[in-house]
Design a protein around this nucleic acid. Structure first.
Lengths: 182, 182
DNA sequence: ACCTGAACACCGTTCAAGT
DNA sequence: ACCTGAACACCGTTCAAGT
């Protein structure tokens, strides 16, 4: 039969997603093509369209799936300054695990339900603890998110120093400015 | 002859660059193809390769040309806080004039000789006036650049409010945090 | 239900040929 | 010197056909 001729098991959305993510991690988003992905899965390119609407829908799935794995620090009762730093660090770590895909998400924010990421709830909670007025939560969180994302993106793009220690120092300084400036 | 059969004058680098920029401004970088660009110029696709090495080289030219037109505020003797704000605003304005291309530059920083942009000299001067130690200039300027770029990128990507006044307020808050946090 | 081959409309780019 | 047509190796995707 067609199935076991080339592969042991039928394709699954999960398998497709994982392989696509691997290709992106290895060679950037521009290294992902439906045809290469199919080759990687030992499958005819057209088989993919049975499981995914099109390339963009696949990317949405891969991005969303990745973003959902962001580990958010819990409310541990420490001062808001410390919690804001912890949130920043968590975001930082997560982006470093999949830099190419994050760079893509950053450039195509329409692909992801950004506001539903839980990240925003945590950020709101911390900002409330910092005494930010209710009507300024949206604006302040937008600014902070843009700052931290800007920093991480810069790093991921190789704008920053190559020395990891120096990058950590820069990140701490970034969080210092935010905490102090708030 | 081949030339005047379709066009009055021979192609020029300048004409190619300007048309490419227009296509990008109108439809994003993904709307620029060598074939469409040639059609726009009433020329055979292959004629372009007589003036430009390849698509990437063309993009480098277009990006660099645009970035060089960033108008940097002069040292007018005002306090560093005010000068830093003015620099931020100048950058902000410039990006808003070519959002699609800037988004692309932001995602492909290797295309541009970023550090030669004059912007950095001005930023260094202002940070010195703010009392930043010589050995911290590089790190601090990296962080600030990442912050401002992050903000503008967020805005350009439609992450922020749709209300221009609200965006201006957010930008002022962003600059407040930076000035105060420094 | 799942997979496939041929085909279509696009790319960027090379190369040999035209004026 | 400048332009061009045909060709090559890639894309994403549709559609009708296979099991």
């Amino acid at each position: 039969m067609a199935v076991s001729a080339r592969r042991g098991s039928p394709l699954s959305r999960e398998e497709i997603r994982a392989t696509a993510l691997r290709l992106v991690d290895e060679g950037g988003v521009e290294a992902l093509s439906m045809r290469k992905l199919a080759a990687e899965l030992n499958v005819n390119p057209m088989s993919l369209y049975h499981h995914v609407d099109n390339k963009e829908a696949l990317l949405v799935e891969v991005c969303t799936n990745m973003a959902e794995r962001l580990h958010l620090p819990p409310d541990d009762g420490t001062p808001w300054q410390e919690q804001l730093r912890a949130l920043g660090r968590a975001y930082h770590e997560h982006v470093r695990a999949h830099p190419a895909l994050w760079a893509y998400v950053h450039g195509h924010p329409e692909l992801i339900e950004n506001r539903k990421l839980g990240l925003w709830e945590v950020l709101y909670r911390i900002l409330r603890a910092a005494g930010v007025a209710e009507e300024e939560l949206r604006r302040t969180s937008d600014v902070l998110h843009a700052f931290v994302t800007g920093f991480i993106f810069s790093e991921v793009q190789g704008h920053m120093s190559d020395d990891p220690d120096e990058i950590d120092r820069a990140f701490e300084q970034a969080m210092d400015i935010i905490v102090k400036g708030l």
